Amino acid sequence: MAAAAAAGAGPEMVRGQVFDVGPRYTNLSYIGEGAYGMVCSAYDNVNKVRVAIKKISPFEHQTYCQRTLREIKILLRFRHENIIGINDIIRAPTIEQMKDVYIVQDLMETDLYKLLKTQHLSNDHICYFLYQILRGLKYIHSANVLHRDLKPSNLLLNTTCDLKICDFGLARVADPDHDHTGFLTEYVATRWYRAPEIMLNSKGYTKSIDIWSVGCILAEMLSNRPIFPGKHYLDQLNHILGILGSPSQEDLNCIINLKARNYLLSLPHKNKVPWNRLFPNADSKALDLLDKMLTFNPHKRIEVEQALAHPYLEQYYDPSDEPIAEAPFKFDMELDDLPKEKLKELIFEETARFQPGYRS
């Protein structure tokens, strides 16, 4: 834990890192770190609560700039109880001085990944967590956004079992017609939660990839272990087919990539493993919904509104309290091709509203 900075004593240090967030945020305490930044909790002297502050230093890398800009653009436009918001952003007053960006968010005690390492969940908890994931996802999908990296560590939890989806750095506007060349190379989302079509096709992607990830998360809540822990690309596919069985001819016809289709045709026939054999203690309604989410063919996979209306979630289902976005989200430009200098300018502009004396 960093010592509390005395008023006016300059930035606090946390594990050798400068955290320049005073005077409003003090009493910093280390939480963890990701690929390009550290997260601390801090005391907000204005709202009198502890908050989470993520320090991001992305400006050396085009990919990190892209992810940072995506996350900020999306989260500043989203407003939903099951999606983490941005409360404040701290950065230098000029673009030349801006080396880091500090993002202030609600402090959540833990995440689903940490929880599943230590606790076996009751059916009631599984049901409530799944409902909140789908409630947040309904809003995301209504904005025409794909999260693309749903996994237990991106689901934040607090002691009252509130759940918030975080990390929109890989999110995209849904565009089933656009052929994202190089899709697989830039697709760094965790393999275990990846839909089979991501490994088999490169053309376009749809909201059904997020539903697949939610199915993987439900299976993990039922058993405290990942359902498809593939060691590499082909191993991942083999794990999936080992449980779902061989795809039907109709399902194979959806695979545009001939090499991928021929690979699947070359494999020995596998039978589907019954879900109640894998999860003998699970609620039968939970397994019915799991089956509809972990469907090989993305066109037959359940959609988020149908999933919310499934009998497993009937005690929570309330369409009048499951809000959607006001308007579909649009990125003005494809960020993939922009140089990091341009992305830095866009991050600077996007964060201006939090600067003292800002006038829109």
Rank of each mutant, 00 (worst) to 15 (best):
A3Q: 08
A4T: 12
A4S: 13
G8L: 08
P11K: 09
E12Q: 11
E12W: 01
M13A: 02
M13C: 01
R15H: 06
Q17A: 11
V18I: 13
V18T: 08
G22N: 12
R24D: 05
Y25G: 02
Y25T: 02
Y30K: 04
Y30H: 00
I31D: 11
I31M: 06
G32A: 03
E33N: 00
G34W: 13
A35F: 01
A35N: 12
A35G: 15
A42D: 00
N47T: 13
K48Q: 13
V51F: 13
K55A: 10
I56Q: 15
F59M: 13
E60A: 14
Y64G: 07
R67W: 12
L69E: 11
L76F: 02
L76S: 11
F78W: 03
H80M: 00
E81K: 12
I83R: 04
I84W: 03
I86H: 10
A92G: 02
T94W: 09
T94Q: 02
Q97T: 10
D100N: 14
Y102T: 08
V104R: 06
L107F: 10
M108D: 08
Y113E: 02
L115R: 00
L115G: 03
L115D: 03
K117N: 15
T118Q: 08
T118C: 07
T118G: 14
N123M: 04
D124Y: 13
D124G: 12
H125M: 03
I126H: 08
I126W: 08
L130S: 07
Y131V: 08
Q132W: 01
Q132H: 15
Q132L: 15
L134T: 08
K138V: 09
I140A: 03
H141P: 12
L146F: 05
R148H: 02
D149C: 04
L150A: 02
L150D: 09
S153C: 13
N158L: 11
T160Y: 08
T160S: 15
D162G: 00
L163D: 00
L163S: 08
K164V: 06
D167I: 03
F168P: 10
F168H: 04
L170F: 01
A171H: 06
A171D: 12
R172T: 01
D175W: 03
D177W: 05
H178P: 12
H178T: 08
D179Q: 02
D179C: 08
D179T: 11
F183V: 14
T185V: 05
Y187E: 03
A189W: 09
T190H: 03
W192M: 12
P196K: 10
I198E: 03
I198P: 03
M199N: 05
L200T: 05
L200I: 08
L200F: 12
S202F: 10
G204T: 09
Y205Q: 06
I209F: 14
W212G: 09
W212E: 11
G215N: 10
C216E: 04
L222F: 10
S223Q: 11
R225I: 07
L234D: 03
Q236S: 08
L237V: 00
H239F: 07
I240M: 09
G242E: 03
L244T: 03
S246V: 04
E250N: 01
E250R: 09
E250C: 08
D251L: 10
D251Q: 11
N253V: 10
C254V: 07
C254H: 05
K259H: 10
K259P: 10
N262L: 04
N262T: 00
P268C: 07
K272C: 09
K272P: 09
P274D: 08
W275A: 01
R277L: 11
R277A: 10
R277Y: 06
L278F: 04
L278P: 05
N281Q: 11
A286N: 02
D288P: 01
D288H: 00
M293V: 00
L294Y: 04
F296E: 00
F296I: 15
N297P: 07
N297V: 08
P298S: 12
I302C: 04
V304K: 00
V304Y: 03
E305C: 03
A307V: 10
A307P: 10
A309T: 15
Q315N: 06
Y316T: 09
Y316K: 06
D318G: 00
S320M: 11
S320D: 10
D321S: 01
E322A: 15
P323C: 06
A327V: 10
P328I: 01
F331S: 00
L335T: 09
L335N: 07
E341A: 08
K344D: 12
L346Y: 09
E349L: 03
A352S: 13
A352P: 00
A352Q: 09
Q355S: 11
R359H: 10
S360R: 04
